[in-house]
Each structure stands twice: as C-alpha cells, then as structure tokens.
C-alpha cells in the first residue's frame, strides 16, 4: 500500500447552513423570513491519517457541520469536495457512493443501534450495502469485530444491543462504519455518552484505526482536553463560526482567540487554584447574531472595530498554520498582555 498520509480526502469551503424559522403573528404578512444561522462560512480540510478536532459549546454548530459533511443536511451555500471533485449527491446511487467513502459515528450508541436486531444484522447490512463482503460474509464479520477489539468475535456476533455495555455498543457502531470501508470518518462526540473509565479505550481504538487504515477523522467534541490528546489539528467553533485553528498542541497551550482562552480557563483543572474573575454571558442568539465578531458582547478585549467588522482569519505567527479570527492580531493593534492561562502552564 502506498503511503498517502496527508493526502486531502474531504475539503469544505465557505460552508453555511441556515435553518428557516417558522413565521408567526405579524410576520406572516411580511415577506421577511428569519433563519437560524447555525453554520456560517466554515472551511476545513480532512487529510488521510490525520484527526481534525472541532471543539465548541453545544449550539455552536459543530454537529451541524458533521451532518452537512455526511450529506444529511443540504448546505445553504458553500462547497464540499471529495478528492478535489465537488460533491453531488442528488439521487440514491450518487449518495451511496459518497457515503461509501464518508461514514459517520453518532454520539449515542444507545440510539444508533436498532434494539431488535443483533450485531450480526447491523454489520452484515453495512457490508452488503457497500459490497464489501468479499465473497465470505462470516469471515468479513469476524474481521470487522476483531478490528474494533471485540474479541473473540463469536462472543459478540449474535448479541443484541441491550446485552452490550455502552463502550461495546460504540465499538459496534464504529465497526458498522468501517463496514463501508470508508476513507473519512465523521465522529460526532463519539465518547461523551460513555463512562469516564472507558472513554479513552474508544479514543485509543479510533486512533489505532486511523493509523492502520489511514483514515481521515473529524472528531467533534466539547472537551478541549480530549482534542489535545487525540487530534492533530484543532478548530474552535463559536456561534456557528470557526474562530481559531491550528495544530492541537499550539491551540491548547497558546490559545489566541479570547473565546478559546475562556474555554480553556473554564475546563476543570485540579492543579490550578480556583479563580474569581469570570467572564460572564452566554452564547448569542443565532437568529439575529451580533454584527462583527460574534464573541464581541462577551469579549474582555472588545474594541470598536469588533462590533462592526467581521474579523478574517489572521495568522498568529507562533507556529505555521495557527490562525484566529480576531482583530487583536491585525496589523497595528497592540498585542494583549499574555493571559493567565499561559503562565499557569509553567
């Protein structure tokens, strides 16, 4: 097998999704339509053998991005390219050929497996639909289960979902995704419903699969510490926009955007004494998002410009590829004093 690590599998450019809001009352008489700006102008690249994490609070649009990539929603605007070719999934056949290459793992393994069917049914369906039985279904099933470390396979193959623990169920869901022999996996909070002690087992499995099968993985999470542990690259989302991106270690150790700094400060950390200065506020309404930078109503470093102009991606310059959408890093702005996070790291 030729080493294709780093090759671009899936690329997204300027992706937006607005969900219409039902009009009521007086609005029915006007032509004005309101919408929830769930995702705005998101660009990202998934490469073979790399994990890209997308971190954000609930409601920041990160799951919508995964659903857009899985073609479960139709984007309002923007382009998705698979191996450089724009994706067109109109019609069942084209959709199936797309999902053969891009598979999704859902958050809740209790809901994503059908309770009335056995593990055998779930996996053989995935293998059959995507034509990957390779002549011998039993053998293919056995191999899938071994791949997700459910060994010996005989013990699990005829079990029903309710007979398995959460971690085992999520492994079956991963095996089902692998049954299509995909090139990209979209993992939407794959471990947040699992018990703390088995989360790492599932994450380590995903990492192992990434290395052996050279998969491109999009890892969606609200836990920035796990992004640091698991992902090569991290993108931070806030209110439907990506606000910072770069190599995971840099983003978590030297966060540039004030929102990322807030997120990291808020993560529980036993090594740090409890602090009193808190940034208050809540994420904005996405029906009428604030003008300019969407973080400006909560930002401790807010400037006049933030309230009117949308900040573009600006290079930070500490490591290549680290950027933030924040006016603090524009030319001619005095850099803010290093925030306490950086010092506490020492």
């Amino acid at each position: 097998m030729t080493d294709k690590t780093g090759e671009v599998v899936l690329e997204v450019d300027g992706l937006s999704k607005h969900f219409p809001v039902r009009r009521k009352g007086r609005e029915l008489l006007t032509r004005k339509a309101r919408s929830v700006h769930a995702v705005d102008d998101v660009s990202l690249t998934l490469r073979r053998g790399r994990v890209t994490a997308m971190v954000g609070e609930s409601g920041s649009g990160k799951s919508t991005v995964a659903r857009l990539l899985a073609q479960l929603h139709k984007p309002t605007s923007g382009e998705i390219r698979l191996h450089g070719k724009p994706v067109d999934t109109r019609g069942g056949r084209r959709f199936r050929s797309y999902v053969r290459q891009v598979q999704m793992i859902f958050q809740d393994p209790f809901g994503s497996l059908n309770p009335v069917h056995t593990v055998r049914y779930h996996l053989s369906r995935s293998l059959r639909i995507h034509g990957n039985t390779g002549g011998n279904l039993e053998e293919a099933l056995r191999e899938l289960l071994t791949r997700v470390q459910l060994t010996p396979p005989e013990r699990y193959i005829d079990k029903f979902p309710h007979e398995l623990s959460g971690g085992q169920r999520q492994r079956v869901a991963i095996a089902r995704a692998l049954g299509a022999n995909p090139e990209a996996l979209l993992a939407d909070e794959p471990v947040s419903m699992l018990d703390v002690s088995i989360r790492l087992g599932v994450l380590n499995l995903l990492r192992d699969l990434k290395e052996r099968l050279n998969l491109a993985i999009l890892y969606i999470t609200h836990d920035i510490a796990s992004a640091r542990y698991f992902a090569d690259e991290t993108l931070v989302m806030y209110a439907g926009r990506v606000v910072e991106g770069g190599d995971s270690e840099t983003v978590t150790q030297n966060p540039a955007h004030p929102y990322t700094q807030l997120l990291i400060d808020s993560a529980p950390d036993p090594d740090r004494p409890a602090r009193a200065d808190e940034v208050g506020g809540e994420p904005p309404s996405l029906i009428r998002p604030p003008a300019g930078c969407r973080f400006n109503p909560r930002c401790p470093h807010v400037m006049e410009r933030c309230k009117t102009d949308l900040p573009p991606r600006l290079e930070i310059g500490d490591t290549p590829g680290h950027w933030a959408a924040c006016w603090l890093y524009a030319e001619g702005v005095a850099k803010p004093a290093p925030v306490a996070t950086g010092e506490a790291a020492g």
């Binding site: 703390v196 002690s197 088995i198 989360r199 790492l200 087992g201 380590n204 920035i224 510490a225 640091r228 542990y229 270690e249 978590t252 150790q253 990291i264 993560a267 950390d269 090594d271 506490a344 790291a345």
Partner: peptide, 11 residues
C-alpha cells in the same frame, strides 16, 4: 489540558 502529553489507557 496542561503539562506533558501522556499516553493514557483508561481502565
């Protein structure tokens, strides 16, 4: 979130 990155196994 801070300090050296370690390989973790869970239980």
């Amino acid at each position: 979130l801070r300090g050296p990155k370690r390989e973790l196994t869970g239980i």
